[in-house]
Amino acid sequence: MKNILKYIFLSLIFFASEIIAQDNVELVAQCAASAGNVTYLKDFIVKLDAGIPGGKPPSAKFSMVLSKNTQYRFSICTAPDSEGEAILQLFDMNVLQGSTYISSTGKEFPFFDFKCQKTGVYHVFISFKEGKPGESVGILSFVKKL
C-alpha cells in the first residue's frame, strides 16, 4: 500500500511538472504576442518564493548581450494565479536603465522600449512587488534597427 501511494505521489509530481511546463509555454506565447508587432528574441521564466519581511525582495537575474543602434522591447507578464505582481528592471552594470514599475509615481507599464547605443552585457532583474511569491514571464523582443 505504501509503495502504491509512493507511485501515485511520484506520478502526480510528474504530471504537475508537465502542466507547469505547458503553462509556461502558453504564458510565453501570450506575453510575446502582447508585446505587439515586434520580433520575439528571448523569454525569462521566473518563479520566486516570498521574501523575508523587511528584507530585499527576491529577484531573478538574466544576463544578455544587447547591440548598439537597436531598439529592444522588454515586456513583463504576471501569471494569472501569481500572488505577487512582477517588475522587470534593466541594468547596465549597476546603473538602472529602465523599469516596468516607477516606484516614485506608482506608474506601471506592461513593457518599455530600450534604444541601445552601446553593445555589451546587460542584466535583467525580475522581482515581485513587496517581495510576494509569484510567477511571471519576461520577454525580450527586437523592435527595429535605429
Binding site: 534593466l90 536603465q97 529602465g98 507599464f109 513593457f111 518599455f112 522600449d113 547605443q117 552601446k118
Partner: peptide
C-alpha cells in the same frame, strides 16, 4: 545618463552611453 521619454503613449528609454 539614460533618458526616459514617452513615444505614442509608450515608455521609451534612450541610452546616452554611446560606444
Amino acid at each position: 545618463e539614460p533618458v526616459a521619454i514617452e513615444e505614442d503613449g509608450m515608455l521609451v528609454i534612450v541610452q546616452k552611453d554611446v560606444s
